[in-house]
Write a protein that binds this DNA or RNA. Structure first.
Lengths: 201, 201
DNA sequence: ACCTGAACACCGTTCAAGT
DNA sequence: ACCTGAACACCGTTCAAGT
């Protein structure tokens, strides 16, 4: 009746894959360890061999999400391109990931009730800040970005991108505003990063 | 044994109040209708008279959160103050609310699986955008903000504030960065809104 | 109108036991 | 090492019945 039993392969990976699918299609409230086990034709206690509890599975899902987000942020920029082009690629990468994986993004940035225990997760979250800092530092080197401590710029810049992505993914923007908004955010961030005109030329 | 039975007062309001307390102290996963009923010394079926299901209670919680956020956004600005001062007040109001109610903020902006059914909620969410638009329009009137369609500016500006508040509330920023970041965000948004220097004076 | 009590189908987690 | 099966304490939701 069933095509095959599953318990030979990589159950951990299969659980994560199926969990992400359920998260995407039915939301986090519909995620149940027992249902995952049923889907994979495994006893309901089997998942506990790979994830000590439900939160551990959610954390693993979020961590995998951060890794995919990082690759989305670091691809798409031509090697020798301008700061504006690199920023545009980063914004498109972030927003593209967010709209393609809205529930996962929610999970990734969910407030942790447990303060520590998730340090790998907060470290992964801060990698986005690191990517923004790299971009800003490079732009400062070429003179396309105002001088000063990089954190003073990359934090507000990333906040704008992160905030826009969150609003767009949450469906809080009218569709046409969401589309046009992306370019507006890029332009806004460019102005925020631009050198002072008075000292220039 | 029990101090008193509860079933006389406003059970709906009592449920919301207790639910928010549990959300704040123990996170959303610990929120259970049955436990709320137990806390309020009421049968476990009583809440269904006031909220058709658990999601309805969460939605009501989120809606109340948006109302409190709106008052936080609209207070704190002196009547005749500058655009910079008004913007600073709005940012402090937003970030103050976010850090004081991190779990509630998460709930308010959680991705809705149900696409409609929550239109009151998305309308409430868009009121923040409306407040930003008012601020921008007023700034354009006084010449402190660059001209053009207000949405082109208020969406990126609010995205920056919203994104920063989310990062700060989620504990993803080192504490000293979170404190200094607020002023950086204000300065960044001011630059993004400022009129072009070339046409000025 | 508002609440109770029982019932149903479902959870997460644990643990002895199997292979 | 990895999984099963039973058990425990807990859910959300529904519904007849009470006042």
């Amino acid at each position: 009746m069933h095509p095959r039993r599953y318990h030979h392969g990589d159950l951990r990976a299969a659980l994560l894959e199926r969990a992400e699918q359920v998260l995407r299609e039915k939301g986090p409230a519909a995620l149940s360890l027992r249902e995952l086990a049923r889907d994979l034709e495994v006893s309901h206690a089997a998942p506990s061999r790979h994830f000590k509890d439900k939160q551990a599975l959610l954390d693993a899902l979020a961590l995998a999400g951060f890794e995919r987000l990082d690759t989305a942020l670091t691809t798409g920029a031509a090697p020798g391109s301008s700061f504006a082009d690199r920023l545009g690629a980063l914004v498109r990468g972030y927003v593209g990931f967010a709209t393609a994986n809205p529930q996962l993004l929610d999970l990734m940035y969910a407030v942790k009730h447990d303060p520590q225990a998730t340090e790998a997760l907060t470290a992964a979250a801060q990698r986005g800040l690191l990517r923004a800092a790299e971009l800003v530092t490079e732009g400062q080197r070429t003179g396309e970005v105002r001088p000063g401590p990089a954190e003073r710029l990359c934090l507000p810049a990333l906040a704008a991108v992160h905030g826009f992505a969150g609003l767009a993914a949450g469906g809080l923007l009218p569709p046409e505003e969401a589309a046009a908004g992306l370019d507006d955010v890029v332009a806004f961030v460019l102005r925020g990063c631009a050198p002072d005109r008075t000292t220039g030329t």
